[in-house]
Design a protein around this nucleic acid. Sequence first.
DNA 1: TGTCCACAGGAAATACGGGGGT
DNA 2: ACCCCCGTATTTCCTGTGGACA
Length: 414
Amino acid sequence: MRVENKIERQMRHLLKNTIILNRRFLDDEQLDRKEQFKVLKEIFDVDVRDREIRELSSHFAPILRNDHPVHLSLLGKTGTGKTVTMLYFLNMLQALCGKKNILMKHIHLDLSTPKPCFRALNDLACLLDASKRYKKGISLDELMSKIEERLKDQQGYFILFIDEIDHVRRDLDSFLKFLVKRLPQTTTLRVVIVFTSNKLNWLENIDPRVKSFLKVNEILFDPYNAVDLRKILLIRIKKALNRKMLRKGVLEKIAAISSRTHGDARKAVELLSKSAQIAESQGTAVTMDVVDVALEEIERDKYVAMIKSAPKQLQAALYAIIAMAANSKKPLQIGDCYQAYYSFCAKVKLRSLTQRAFSDLVSELDIYGFIQVRIVSQGRYGRRREITVNLPLDISEKLKRVVLMEFDIGELIS
DNA sequence: TGTCCACAGGAAATACGGGGGT
DNA sequence: ACCCCCGTATTTCCTGTGGACA
């Protein structure tokens, strides 16, 4: 057979077995606002998040009557659609207000990465075009004044959508105090603040003096169930994938796994996407087995990505603990781990921390899920935390290698 | 019943780095 | 050049504690 024919046949075969037709629809980051809204509209059109949208409507209805709604707090885990629903809703509301000649504007302050109070205020000021971007060096008061100045003489409704409010580390109180006490007094705008949080009780930890000022309504976003996830995934599949290459039941399986483990739409789409990728690179259809492989791969990548982006000290602590755990079947205790960490630091020329600081690193590793920590009292033999490592062997080996690479040490240290 | 282990974990202090106004 | 401001990382200092053991 002539070589041209071979190539052509090969290409046609590949084309026929292509799974991902339009990668962009598997990753919201790559879609622009307009396309995102289009996808969202389709999702809402099949009655997903119906209750939440109805509640939002009734919360904001007073605006159309020239009345003042109280603030709003959207609660729910990550990936339950708090942000997208709200953005979509605000967009609609904006259009509605436009029709009725009601002055309304909204701003989305995204705190999805943790920031101190200063940074949050600065971001807000930038969004309002009230100040330039500072890194540091300017007092909080000045920033607040700039924002006030900017908003002073404006009229109408001002909806401030603050995403992930609990990510304001340190001094959340003064941030809120400014927003709910000081700001409304210095402006003629009617301010309505919408908070988002994945901690159901974030309001309970704030300064009572601020809290008393903060009248909020709450809307709870439940994790998606399998039925909703199926609808959401189906829309993505239609847009992005070659459906012929999806074996029967795969969609249901992904929906079921996702609703069972987290109910997070973004993660569900990620699993779909990963499965398609794997199947495509193997040249097979997306089968149930492929989904399992994808699940494992996502899990592993999660750990690796986390430790790679973590501070050096945390990496060292993790290495020491994993290495210790490999040599002993019993749970570890802090003191021994600290010794291991200490000598590891010496080997890689890292300044070692005190045990107090190390103890915090251990808690952090626990939060991230690398290790499990349990406080156990041994009577006169002390009160201590027992450390266990439950990572699958391949992952812990991989993590050790990653850490060593981070320290520029190729060869294994015994 | 009191002691005392081996830490946990909170609070405050300190060190350090770097930006901004003047 | 000087002083002020802020953030982060750590250290220092500290009080608290469940229960085995004497």
